[in-house]
Every structure is written in C-alpha cells, then in structure tokens.
Computed example of a mutant assay.
Amino acid sequence: MAEDRPRERADAARNRRAILDATRALLAEYGGEAITMDRVAAAAGVGKGTIFHRFGSRAGLLHELVAEPALALMNAVRDGPPPLGPGAEPGDRLLAYFGAMTELVVDNLELMVAYRSESPHPRSEEFHAFWAAHITALLAEARPDVDAEVVGALLLAPLGGEPAARMVRAGEADRLRAGVLALVEAVLRRP
C-alpha cells in the first residue's frame, strides 16, 4: 500500500537521519538529560528550527526514535518468522516476544527513560495497545485459566520500570533477560 504523504526531499531525509543519529549518540554518551534541542542541533549540524519544524518538540523527537525499533518489532510480530511471528505455539511466541521486547529495552534504555519523562505522545497509545493485545491473545490461548489481560500487563510492567533500568545500567542486562524469561515461563506453567 503506497503512502499518501509526499516524497521526502533528499536534504530533508539527510537532516532527519542526522538529527536522529545525533540524538542517539547523545543518549548513549550522556543519557536523557543531554537531549536539548540546542545540543541535538549542534551535534547534528542543523539549526534548532529544523528540529522543531520536523519533530515539533523534544517529545516528538524522542517518539520518532522510539517508533523505529517499536515498528520493527510490531512488523516482526505480525509478519515475521516463528516463533516471534505467526506459526508457533502461543507459549513459544510469548517467550520470543518478551525476549525481543527485553532486547529492545536493553538496546534503547536511555531513550526509553527519556521518553517516559515526557508527556505521552499522541501515537504512544498505538504501541501500548498493540503490545497489550498481542500479549493478552497469546496468554489467553496458552493459559485460558488466568485473566490474560491483567497477567499480561503485569508481565510487561517490569520492563518499563526502575529495576530494569538499574540492572541494565549496572551491566546486568543478561540477568534481566534471564529473569524476564523465567517470569514468563513460570506464568506459562500450569500449577
């Protein structure tokens, strides 16, 4: 399906990429506090007005960065190969999803922390609703004896919380990965 938006000019595409790359670099080196429009503009080699024109605000810029890996994961869940994509058992898909979501959080931790400090972007709910529906559907199929909506929300919540951020910052990403998968496996086992 073709998009109805006009084709992006080459210089606009270069500026967009430079801004996103500069923001990622600042996040990686200095954390979310470093993300000011002045610093991003200087690092990207563009005017501050270019950033505001393109993204509207700091929240819009951060949303654009969050959207890239989130959309990639959504596409993999919808159309990718199993076990993340369709065609695998619901429990296997749930484990694959939580493995991939944990990786997304680990790889983008400072971005996620900065993003959560902003007012919600208008499209934020789109991602949250997709994850909730996906987890709920798989959990309802794998464990019809539990309240899949509540249990699914509880499974996802720790990835957005302070313990996950603290573990990643302390170099304990492997422990976080193992802990998340152990939690999901425990829920998938019937008592």
Rank of each mutant, 00 (worst) to 15 (best):
G152K: 04
M167N: 05
R16A: 08
E125K: 15
P69N: 09
V113M: 03
L156M: 12
R143N: 02
V66I: 10
A2Y: 11
E3F: 09
N15M: 12
L95D: 02
V77R: 06
P158M: 02
G85T: 05
N75R: 15
L71H: 09
A88D: 12
F52L: 12
D147G: 08
G56N: 00
A148P: 02
D38V: 08
A157M: 12
S57K: 07
V150T: 15
R7M: 14
E118F: 08
I35C: 01
R123I: 10
A114E: 03
A13S: 05
A157T: 07
L109D: 11
G171V: 08
G49Y: 04
Y115C: 07
L84D: 00
S124L: 10
E89L: 13
L181D: 13
A148F: 00
F52D: 07
V168G: 02
V40F: 01
G85I: 06
G49C: 09
Y115K: 03
G31T: 06
E118M: 10
A186I: 00
E185S: 12
V66M: 13
A153D: 11
V77N: 03
R123K: 14
A34M: 01
E68F: 09
E125C: 11
R166C: 09
H53W: 06
P120E: 14
P158D: 05
H121I: 04
F55D: 07
F127T: 14
A129D: 15
D4Y: 10
